[in-house]
């Protein structure tokens, strides 16, 4: 019954290597998603009309279609018009572009909640619109977004598992290889699941830590009128 524990001994190196790739995919996807997501959120709240619409359309498309379809379009589709990516680059892009749409929505919600009152306060002492956004609104909005945004790294980490379909050598791919070698699908995937679970626990603890560290003294739930 406990034979699956033995797989850690036998495939430990492979799992570790795969987990490393999984973490890399998560980190890069999250980073691309954050930068682009922040841009989209700001564009939707403060950009000119046309940019608001472009950002809105982007978010609608990337949240409204399956990540797997996006991944296949980027990896199999784009080479047909002359844009070819390596497997890893295609995976980074698909995860990042998709995550951006979700992160934009988390951030936009809290930017709106901090909103126009703080904008007035900032403008009243002579700060420009963008100075107010960067020095006043974002520092508060990012903190406010943190608890709900924390779902995104966790969800993304698990979502990365689909990239084995374009042969990126992540934890899932290593698992599949081990399963084929042993024919013990239940045991191997159980072991793989445990590795995912451990990563999620650690990530979750890290996020809770950041949340505690960035809390504003004297503020429990921060809202602004």
């Amino acid at each position: 019954m406990l034979t699956w524990l033995g797989y850690f001994e036998r495939f430990g190196q492979n799992f570790l290597r795969g987990a490393g790739v999984t973490l890399e995919l998560t980190a890069v996807g999250l980073a691309i998603g954050f930068v682009l997501g922040l841009f989209l959120a700001l564009a939707r709240s403060y950009g000119p009309k046309w940019l608001q619409q472009v950002a809105g359309a982007y978010i609608a498309v990337f949240r409204g279609t399956p990540l797997l379809v996006q991944l296949f379009i980027i990896y199999y589709g784009l080479p047909e018009i002359g844009i070819a990516f390596s497997q890893n680059l295609a995976a980074y892009l698909a995860l990042g572009l998709n995550s951006a749409a979700y992160q934009a929505e988390y951030l936009r919600g809290s930017i709106n909640a901090i909103g126009s009152a703080q904008m007035q306060a900032g403008r009243s002492i002579g700060l420009s619109k963008w100075q107010t956004i960067f020095y006043v609104i974002l520092p508060q909005a990012l903190r406010l977004a943190l608890p709900s945004w924390s779902n995104e790294p966790i969800s993304l980490l698990k979502t990365t598992a689909i990239v084995f379909l374009i042969a990126v050598q992540d934890l899932m791919a290593e698992g599949k290889r081990a399963a084929t070698a042993t024919f013990d699908f239940v045991g191997v995937y159980l072991a793989v699941a445990v590795v995912y679970l451990v990563m999620v626990f650690v990530l979750d603890a890290l996020l809770k830590f950041v949340e505690r560290k960035t809390k504003i003294p004297g503020m429990d739930i921060e809202t602004s009128r």
């Binding site: 009152a117 703080q118 007035q120 306060a121 900032g122 403008r123 009243s124 002492i125 002579g126 700060l127 420009s128 006043v136 520092p139 508060q140 903190r143 504003i216 503020m219 921060e222 602004s224 009128r225």
Partner: peptide
């Protein structure tokens, strides 16, 4: 230049509107 003007006009709000962070 609005930003220039506002430097010279102090404003105190009913709800304080301090920068909470």
């Amino acid at each position: 230049d609005e930003d220039q003007v506002r430097q010279h006009i102090g404003m105190v709000f009913q709800n304080f509107l301090l920068f909470n962070h």
